[in-house]
Amino acid sequence: MMQDYLFFAGINILLAWSVYIILMSGSLSFANGGFMAVGAYASGLMTTRYGWDLWLAIPASAALAGLFGALISLPALRTRGVYLILVTIGVSFCMVVAIESTELLGGVQGLGGLVGTEPWHVGALVLAVGACLWLVSYTPLQRILDAVREDEHVAGALGVNATYVKVVTFGVGAALAAAAGALYGHYLIFIRPEHFNIMISLFMVLYVILGGVNNLWGAALGAALMTLVPEFIRVLAEWRPTVFGVLIVLLLLVRPEGILAFRTVTARAGKRIRKEGAP
């Protein structure tokens, strides 16, 4: 159904952005499936068990996941980037097992009765988050994030507290993944631990890499393409992983920075130069 496709495309765009936000400060997270689970299960528990309103449950669960994400990244960021990748993979695995062995969350059977998400809710969140990221891309914050990502030691010498910047972006990314997870859960009605396994985390990262790591459009494009195209081309759906994989390998060989590789320039001096008549 068209509506479902668009809904899942929207969720995947949000998830791709949650990875992109963390990547903005140079960290790669394979734990966003886990943060998504925090959002879905926390909001599910709040609404079904404690009768909270969904619109209160979503921000609350996002905040919870944001805090959790920041906590995870705090010690891991002391070490090199590769170790953080390992830690996030570990978190993804542990999260699924933790849910499976928690009775309150329904264990392996899953948690049911989650309702209330309409497709347009996701559309609205996509627009809102997209607008925020777009605005940020012209501000000093974008420059600082780019600096940390490109060379955190030099950024540190300029006075940037790179650890703080990375922890905050990690938390924000985790919160967005959780918000997407909450919307997703309340659309599916029934959620199970395997909805949030390592493969989900992995695919989110691949959307971003495929679309482009330097701007918000790339991540959105990658997610939309990889969700929607296979739905309309039957052969693609059947061979999705292979086609996806081969496409990524080839694309990275041709365009190592993804389909949309440009970076937004945060400030231009062009007009001034012309006005002053410099050569």
């Binding site: 914050l141 420059r143 780019d146 300029l158 006075g159």
Partner: peptide, 16 residues
């Protein structure tokens, strides 16, 4: 990856 101008802008203390 930044422009020449941005390399200077990025270092202003109030934003850093």
């Amino acid at each position: 990856r930044m422009s020449v101008l941005e390399n200077v802008l990025v270092a202003f203390p109030e934003h850093v």
